[in-house]
């Protein structure tokens, strides 16, 4: 599967997930929140992981990224948010996620 990971940093949590997805044989690419909507429009990934600052929806601009992604992804594309724990319409995982949790989320 083609997977886009949205994260502005290279935290060990995100890099660990990146490595895990690559080891599983998936085509993984990383993008920033500023470019996320464009990246998804061009690459048409099967799955989008939102990590790091993106999940902090209290920030207005991060909410906008999620809003744009929600509008732009098709029903067959899965959006997974990391670290957001108070519910919502997306599949959620905590950071750091274990290998098993990542595999189960796909």
């Amino acid at each position: 599967m083609k997977i886009v990971v949205i994260s502005r940093d290279n935290s060990i949590d995100v890099l660990g997930m990146f490595d895990c997805l690559g080891e599983l044989g998936h085509e993984v690419m990383k993008t920033t929140r500023d470019q996320a909507v464009l990246t998804c429009a061009v690459e048409m990934p099967d799955i989008v992981f939102c990590c790091g600052e993106v999940y902090k929806s209290s920030k207005q601009d991060d909410s906008l990224v999620l809003n744009d992604l929600q509008n732009s992804l098709s029903p067959k594309q899965k959006l997974i948010r990391f670290g957001f724990t108070t519910g919502g319409q997306y599949q959620l995982l905590r950071l750091p996620a274990t290998r098993e949790e990542i595999i189960a989320s796909l």
Binding site: V42, E43, S74
Partner: peptide, 28 residues
């Protein structure tokens, strides 16, 4: 209508970003 638009966009091999109101559209 968005679902119909997405199907049409994909049929031409294009990519697209979608907005549902003027403010979001102008921002994008």
């Amino acid at each position: 209508e968005i679902l119909l638009a997405k199907t049409a966009v994909e049929s031409f091999g294009c990519g697209a970003m979608y907005a549902t109101n003027l403010v979001d559209a102008k921002r994008l």
